[in-house]
């Protein structure tokens, strides 16, 4: 089984670190992983995206043109990647600031209002883990235990006290993701 995922949004939304935690969680289960960012000045303030692949087999290209799952966290990312989701694939978006929602009917679309939820939780840093919860609800590609191990690996020791909060955010994301019916 192979999962080819693009995560895209604004710099500062935790796009790259979410990809890293996902990749590390995959490693905890012995999977092959790649994490390929669009690098450069885009990292700060502009748009950021990262391609994450989890697979049971050796991964060939870390650079893709079509994805099983696209997670788009702002309008420019939605505009850019909606067309790149494979037919039958999944598109996940946060409706905050989205004026032109997805239109394709050959893919499944899901909404996770992570901006709003993280505000409710009074924890803007939980944003990316809420999104990841949504992803794992739809595609349970790694177990929660692996995610906790992945968090331990990818966060510096001084931030390990935040792991329970991250875990909670993932669970909230799992509960709050909704299918967009059209």
């Amino acid at each position: 089984m192979t999962h080819e995922i693009i995560i895209a949004g604004f710099g500062g939304q935790g796009v790259l670190s979410m990809g890293k935690i996902l990749a590390y969680s995959g490693i905890m289960e012995g999977k092959e992983v790649t994490w390929m960012p669009a690098y450069g000045p885009e990292q700060r303030g502009g748009t950021a995206n990262v391609t994450v692949i989890l697979s049971d087999e050796r991964i060939s290209s870390p650079v893709l043109n079509a994805y099983d799952v696209a997670i788009v966290l702002n309008q420019p990312s939605l505009d850019k990647f909606e067309s790149k989701v494979k037919p039958g694939g999944i598109l996940i978006y946060d409706s905050y600031g989205i004026t032109n929602p997805p239109t394709r009917t050959d893919i499944e679309c899901y909404c996770i209002d992570a901006t709003q939820i993280s505000n409710e939780m009074n924890n803007s840093k939980a944003f990316n883990m809420i999104v990841m919860g949504g992803l794992l609800k739809l595609r349970p590609m790694v177990t929660m235990d692996s995610v906790v191990l992945g968090l331990k690996k990818s966060l510096p020791e001084r931030h390990h006290k935040l792991i329970p909060a991250n875990e909670a955010a993932i669970k909230v994301g799992m509960e709050r993701i909704e299918k967009v019916e059209r």
Partner: peptide, 10 residues
């Protein structure tokens, strides 16, 4: 190249 330098893998 930039792909191999910047990407993360096992």
């Amino acid at each position: 190249d930039g792909v191999i330098g910047q990407m993360m893998e096992k």
